Amino acid sequence: MIKRKDGFSGERALVVPHSIIEEMEKHPLMAPLHITDIGYYPKAEYHYRERREPITQYILIYNVEGRGWYQLDGQKYEVKSNQYFILPAGKPHAYGSYENEGWTIYWIHFKGSLAEHYAQGASKPIDILPTIDSRINTRMDLFEEIYHTLEMGYSRENLLYACSCFAHYLGTLRYLQSYRNASYNDSISSDPIMITVHYMKENIGKKVTLQELADNLGYSASHFSAIFTQRMGNSPLNYFNQLKIQKACQLLDFTDMKINQVCFKVGIEDNFYFSRLFRKIMGMSPQAYKQMKKG
């Protein structure tokens, strides 16, 4: 069986230098909770990692698509789409994706005196399922903000901001319902079209079929497509593609991601198809858009 630690198309990873970690460990605001490694692996087929010698970091793995597994304390756990878990520091472990079912994961290694408190109860898989108030896409944007801040360099201000954002990020997972309630909008809770648009945004990085969108409302595919098109002036899947390209534009504008990385972030694996779709909707190539002066 093929086993790979890294080297996945569209992947990103950043390892904080040891000297910077030592600096954070001495700072009163950063010592309680700080990141040592952070990354994103899309469609990571044959992903595998085993550590027989324990490490000092906690490891958060948030699986947004696909299936995987991990072993801890002699027990094997199955990990489905929209689940996360945190491996405790100081314990041997192994994890990976299943053959032909590569998972898409956000992962963060972290340390500090508060780490064990945020990790409490998360050694088993925890569901983060899309709902009308789930705010999954907002959480993904927060991850990107942390990553981009660290990518801009290890100034004291960057490190402090990344640590502050990371505490918030962990809070969105640990205090899930409070996070969801914080911006719950009653006005869309009974509107099937707005429910669908919210579902699309929460699943912007995935392939979603017309039948899945209809099933989310309990409608037949034909009835759902008819009412959506009448209301929004576009078919559901065309509208979803517009949202994907809108998100791609934001990533091109506000991150340093390469175009092939942006593809995976919006759930499109084929670079050529992404470029054609982008040009069709925006009237220019992704490269031209990225170079265009705005504002």
Rank of each mutant, 00 (worst) to 15 (best):
M1I: 07
I2M: 13
I2V: 12
I2T: 14
K3L: 11
D6P: 01
G7D: 03
F8S: 05
E11G: 00
E11W: 00
R12D: 10
V15T: 05
V15F: 05
P17K: 07
H18W: 04
S19C: 14
I20P: 13
E22N: 14
P28N: 13
P28F: 09
L29F: 15
M30P: 01
P32W: 13
P32C: 03
L33Y: 00
L33R: 03
I38V: 13
G39M: 02
G39K: 03
Y41N: 07
E45F: 00
Y46N: 13
H47S: 03
R49K: 02
E50W: 00
R52L: 13
P54N: 07
I55G: 08
I61G: 03
I61W: 06
N63F: 12
G66Q: 13
G66I: 03
G66M: 07
W69V: 08
W69M: 07
Y70A: 09
Q71Y: 12
L72S: 02
E78T: 14
S81Y: 10
G90Q: 09
P92Y: 12
H93S: 08
A94N: 01
G96T: 00
E101I: 04
E101R: 04
E101C: 02
T104V: 02
T104M: 06
I105C: 09
I105Y: 01
Y106L: 10
W107E: 00
H109M: 02
F110C: 09
A122W: 09
S123V: 12
K124W: 00
L129E: 13
T131A: 11
F143Q: 01
T149P: 00
T149K: 04
T149I: 01
C165K: 05
L173G: 06
Y175A: 06
R180L: 08
S183T: 12
S190A: 14
D191I: 12
I195R: 15
V197I: 15
G205Y: 10
K206F: 04
T209E: 02
F224I: 08
R231P: 03
R231T: 15
M232W: 01
S235I: 06
L237E: 07
Q242A: 08
K244N: 06
I245M: 11
K247D: 04
L252P: 13
D253M: 15
F254S: 13
N260R: 12
V266H: 05
D270K: 06
Y273E: 14
S275F: 04
K280W: 03
I281D: 08
M282G: 01
M284N: 06
Q287L: 14
Q291H: 15
M292H: 14
